[in-house]
Design a protein around this nucleic acid. Structure first.
Lengths: 208, 208
DNA sequence: GGACTCCTCTATCTTAAGGGGGAGCGAACA
DNA sequence: TGTTCGCTCCCCCTTAAGATAGAGGAGTCC
């Protein structure tokens, strides 16, 4: 039996989702929502103010995205318990969050019971990852990482830019742009740039 | 003053979102949630059973997507009042839904008050469209439509297939595939296939 | 029947993309 | 110190992609 209720902060830019989570959490005898944030900056501010037991965090938010919030909050309190709740199931997103130090990762189509289970687990510092999410995180292992420059190029490729255009924007030669694209194709195991974009999108490396 | 409460059905594959909407709706004196669906088929079944005043519908759902549900429900009852509530803000999605006969279109980041306003409007058979959404619907006007065949080709292009591969899958010659791709590029005002994919994704013509 | 759209196919030509090499240079690191 | 890694640039070569221009057949609409 716990002496205190689990104090929860919700961070999601959709009011409907916050209301849904709040309804689910506040129905429980052992937990309560102490604050709600609508963007990344607000999430950090409210974390510092309330120092909750658990933070439920959406990945894509205005002003500052989920990964950045995870980093900042763990700087403030390395023992913070963060549960990611998002629609994105790409292995890169999952891997980034968990390796940054988030304690749990849930998809938004999760049933109520699983959400509560996850919050309770995370509040006790136990990691929570559903089997499908865990599988994706493992998929990511062994796959080569892209360098920052390659991610820059990939982003432009995804916007439909030509090699020449990419070179101009990054102030490099077209040959160098091609070299980067070639490296991207190899790492993503793609034959063409269009396939590379499809793969990268599926894996969560880029968000169009 | 109304004699009856507005009877609402919710259709969304995220339990959290359904709970959030239910909490918001049931707090109001003049409306109530009579049923909740987690996929497209269920949404249609429950509509027939309950004949609600308003149906709040997500666009992307398992089994049958939002547009298909709109079509089917309006076949059952041409006077049905459907309010789309989704994260997708591409002009094609909006245009499709509204031209199929949905009475309203909301984005999921809408504040509580706007959701209630929209439900009340739609229940009285008044269309509800926020200014930004309406602007997108108008943007779609004047833009050329893609034929079914072009959409088939576009989908394969988006998956990263080559012209030769596309031709094989559709049992046409590579030249014909090129003709379709050329038409797609012209209609989407894109220079390369990769840009076409980016534009098509932004507009909601394809969903990766 | 004529006008129209869509799908199909043809051919030629130019340019962009991709494969396969190699190489210099600075920063980080052991 | 030597080694590794990331970024940059260069070469040649083959193939895919895109631009241009045309044409026949099936279907629909008026």
């Amino acid at each position: 039996m716990k002496s205190h209720k689990i104090r929860v902060i919700l961070a999601d830019d959709h009011p409907v989702v916050r209301d849904g989570l709040a309804a689910i959490v506040n129905q429980q005898a052992d937990m309560e929502v102490v604050a709600e944030a609508g963007d990344g900056d607000e999430a950090i501010t409210l974390y510092e103010q309330h120092r909750p037991d658990v933070m439920v965090l959406d990945l894509r938010m205005p002003k500052r995205d989920g990964v950045a919030v995870v980093q900042r909050v763990l700087e403030i309190n390395p023992k913070a318990c963060i549960l990611i709740m998002t629609t994105y199931d790409g292995d890169e997103d999952i891997f980034q969050c968990l390796s940054q130090g988030a304690k749990g990762y849930l998809l938004k189509d999760a049933p109520r019971q699983e959400i509560l289970t996850a919050i309770r687990a995370v509040s006790e510092d136990r990691p929570y990852t559903s089997s499908t999410v865990a599988a994706k995180a493992l998929q990511r292992m062994g796959k080569p990482s892209l360098t920052q420059r390659e991610l820059d190029v990939l982003q432009l490729v995804a916007e439909g830019r030509s090699n020449k255009d990419i070179a101009r924007r990054l102030s490099i030669t077209e040959g160098t742009a091609k070299t980067h694209v070639k490296a991207i194709l190899t790492k993503l195991d793609a034959i063409s740039r269009t396939e590379a974009v499809a793969v990268a999108h599926k894996r969560g490396l880029i968000h169009l």
